[in-house]
Computed example of a mutant assay.
Amino acid sequence: MSTTPSGEPGSTVGRPRLTVVSGPSGVGKSSVLAELRRLRPEIFFSVSVTTRTPRPGEVDGVHYHFTDHAEFHRMAGAGELLEHAEYAGNRYGTPRGPVERALAEGRPALLEIEVQGARQVRATMPDAQLVMLLPPSWDVLVDRLTGRGTEDPEVVRRRLAAAREELDAVGEFDATVVNTDVRNAAAELLTLVVGPGLSPHSRS
């Protein structure tokens, strides 16, 4: 079985908690989480806040909460973000309030984020469960990241280096799920998110 939980079994039984999902680019996080959303739409999926300009088709509050640098700085300083980081001149973060409200309502919460962000969440919310989504093998991931061989070799090199760095952090996570098949991976992740007593198979 590819799901390998660790830590303190039973410490959060009976109450919802935040699950943080990380994994290298190309591992299929979007596909697995889309299937998870189909299986259990009641799970709260955190929406990040960003200072980036919306792209065509993006909806405020659905894809991101779009804001300006001043408001983002205020939120970070006031402790309203579980984690935050800067990429390519734009800032991204996870609002604390919606996650805490979902958990208080009895809804499991899920956040997809990079390893660095997962570390910050662990520091600010120690009960959070960290899960890493893994490829079936390194060769499979390389095939996905290199694509058709038409991209600049330096871009490919940076992608592979970033993927290796993410995978090297697997020991910091509470569980792993290998994405050999999207539906199976989503089912295993769901078991981690809501507990083994609520199997998805009867509704898939």
Rank of each mutant, 00 (worst) to 15 (best):
S199H: 07
G195Y: 11
T191E: 15
V20E: 04
S25R: 03
G97V: 11
R159A: 03
F45C: 07
A70R: 09
T19P: 14
T124C: 01
L141G: 09
A70S: 13
L110I: 05
A118G: 15
A161Y: 01
S202N: 04
G77D: 12
P135Q: 00
P16M: 04
H63P: 09
E172M: 12
R37S: 10
T94R: 01
S46G: 15
G23T: 03
G14V: 12
V47N: 06
F72A: 12
A70L: 08
P54W: 02
G171M: 01
I113Q: 00
Y64I: 04
G14E: 14
P54F: 00
E188N: 10
P56S: 12
L103G: 13
F45T: 06
H69K: 04
P9G: 04
L192Q: 04
D60T: 06
L81V: 03
S22Q: 05
T50A: 08
S11D: 12
E58W: 09
E151W: 01
E105T: 00
L192S: 03
S137Y: 11
H69R: 11
A187L: 12
L141P: 14
A104T: 08
R74A: 14
Y87Q: 13
R52F: 13
L130E: 10
V170W: 12
Q120M: 11
F72V: 12
V170N: 03
L81C: 01
V194A: 13
A163I: 02
A185L: 10
N184E: 15
T50K: 05
V140Y: 04
D174T: 08
R40W: 10
L36Y: 07
G93A: 12
L111A: 07
L110F: 11
L81N: 01
G28A: 01
R119N: 09
A78M: 13
E58M: 00
H65Y: 14
H84Y: 14
H69Y: 03
F66G: 08
L103N: 09
M132W: 05
S202L: 11
D168W: 02
P54S: 04
D174H: 15
D174K: 11
H73K: 12
S48N: 06
L33A: 04
A76M: 10
F44D: 06
G147I: 02
R164G: 06
G106F: 11
V27N: 03
A102M: 09
R122A: 15
H201K: 02
E100S: 05
V59H: 08
Y92K: 06
A104Q: 11
A85Q: 07
